[in-house]
Amino acid sequence: MNYYEPLAYVVPQEEEGFVLRTILQKRLHVSRKLLSRIKLTEQGITVNGVRKYIDVKVMAGDLVEIRMEQEQSDDIMPQDLPLDIIFEDDHLLIVNKPAGMIVHPTHGHYVGTIANAVVFHWQRMEGRFRFRPIHRLDQETSGVLAIAKNPYVHQQVSEQMQAGAVDKEYAALVYGVIEQDAGTVNEPIDRDPLQPHIRIVTPDGYPSVTHYRVLRRFPGATLAGLRLETGRTHQIRVHMQHLGHPLVGDKMYKGEAAEAGELAGLTMERQALHAARLAFTHPGLNRAVEFTAGLPEDMQQCLNLLEQKERIYNDGQGV
């Protein structure tokens, strides 16, 4: 049986006499579900190299190690597809997802996904990992995507997300000029009862909070930075539409501002939304890490067009 590199912890003097279960759950932060899995594997939990039951007491200086069996995604077909890798180590793979690409195979989309490309990449590198995206991005949203290489890392970063300890920032180009330099949209979101695939702001919805700040204003449009406190489906798109500033190119969540912008020639083939930055505590390194991805070509081209229009506008005003 093959294992990933073990996670290790040396018991300090002040923790002598602690029960091994406490060390695993309180110091290594192993969830009960994952602990149950590890206990079933040979050499899954050891103290000084010897397999132990989790109800034994440990001594100062003991080396506690947990080992997880190597896995791979046998149900995902590997495909040699372009993969923009931002960062990779033994614990994590961070990629810059292009717009138009689905993260995980679904019914009717078994190939051409990020998962297919990642599995091929790992096989070529002779690595045995199961595809575990820590979060998802909509098909038409580009940017930073984090993928865990083992269940422990997936659990750790997922819990950081649930606790609001992961800093995610998006860049969005929206119709209309946002007057406030920064603000917060705190409006509940739920499915539209008449169109279940669409989300709407409704008093009976789930709590949803989006923070925004203006990065740059143009005549008729704004480049905004957005941070999420919650992770509802289509949250940014729904909240910006509610604010009166729908995303450029968003065909599902539109409004009068979008129609006016399209008539003026401001449009894209997809919603102008990009996951620009992701920051969290790396479970394997136990330190803060940050990953960024620059604006994709289609959004940059749109900004270039707006800059040209801005110069023409300013010239016409005699600026």
Results as ranks from 00 to 15, higher is better:
212 Y>R: 06
207 P>A: 00
210 T>G: 02
218 F>S: 09
196 P>A: 15
200 I>P: 08
212 Y>E: 03
202 T>N: 08
209 V>I: 05
210 T>M: 05
192 D>F: 14
194 L>N: 14
195 Q>P: 11
208 S>R: 05
179 E>T: 12
208 S>F: 00
178 I>A: 06
208 S>N: 02
237 R>H: 14
242 H>T: 11
179 E>M: 13
175 Y>S: 11
185 V>C: 06
196 P>Q: 15
165 A>E: 15
201 V>W: 00
224 A>C: 09
163 A>K: 13
240 M>Y: 13
223 L>K: 08
220 G>Q: 01
171 A>S: 09
164 G>V: 04
210 T>S: 01
224 A>V: 09
222 T>H: 03
196 P>T: 12
172 A>Y: 13
220 G>W: 04
226 L>Q: 09
231 G>F: 05
234 H>F: 01
213 R>H: 06
223 L>T: 00
182 A>Y: 14
169 E>M: 08
221 A>W: 06
196 P>M: 12
188 P>A: 04
206 Y>L: 13
211 H>Y: 04
174 V>T: 03
180 Q>N: 15
245 H>V: 10
173 L>F: 11
219 P>I: 02
181 D>W: 13
238 V>R: 06
191 R>V: 14
244 G>K: 08
236 I>P: 02
228 L>P: 04
171 A>N: 14
196 P>R: 11
177 V>D: 15
243 L>N: 02
224 A>I: 05
214 V>E: 08
221 A>M: 04
211 H>E: 03
189 I>E: 11
189 I>V: 10
233 T>Y: 10
182 A>V: 07
219 P>F: 04
195 Q>K: 15
169 E>Q: 15
188 P>W: 04
164 G>Q: 12
233 T>S: 08
206 Y>G: 10
234 H>C: 07
178 I>D: 09
186 N>T: 14
202 T>R: 03
195 Q>H: 15
175 Y>P: 13
187 E>V: 04
188 P>D: 05
235 Q>E: 12
205 G>S: 09
230 T>L: 01
241 Q>K: 13
217 R>F: 04
208 S>M: 06
204 D>P: 03
232 R>I: 01
193 P>Q: 11
192 D>Y: 13
202 T>Y: 02
208 S>D: 02
165 A>F: 09
198 I>S: 15
246 P>E: 01
205 G>L: 04
189 I>A: 02
172 A>W: 07
212 Y>G: 00
241 Q>W: 01
193 P>V: 10
166 V>N: 14
209 V>E: 09
230 T>A: 04
203 P>Y: 01
206 Y>I: 07
230 T>W: 00
184 T>D: 14
211 H>N: 02
220 G>F: 12
245 H>K: 03
166 V>M: 12
170 Y>Q: 09
195 Q>G: 12
233 T>R: 10
197 H>W: 14
174 V>F: 05
171 A>C: 04
209 V>M: 02
187 E>G: 09
177 V>P: 07
225 G>S: 02
239 H>F: 10
192 D>T: 11
208 S>H: 03
226 L>D: 00
187 E>S: 15
242 H>G: 14
225 G>A: 07
182 A>P: 06
233 T>C: 05
211 H>K: 05
167 D>N: 11
240 M>E: 12
191 R>T: 14
214 V>W: 06
201 V>H: 03
223 L>M: 03
189 I>Y: 13
235 Q>H: 09
240 M>R: 15
194 L>G: 11
183 G>K: 03
243 L>C: 10
196 P>H: 14
211 H>L: 06
222 T>K: 01
180 Q>I: 07
219 P>W: 09
184 T>N: 12
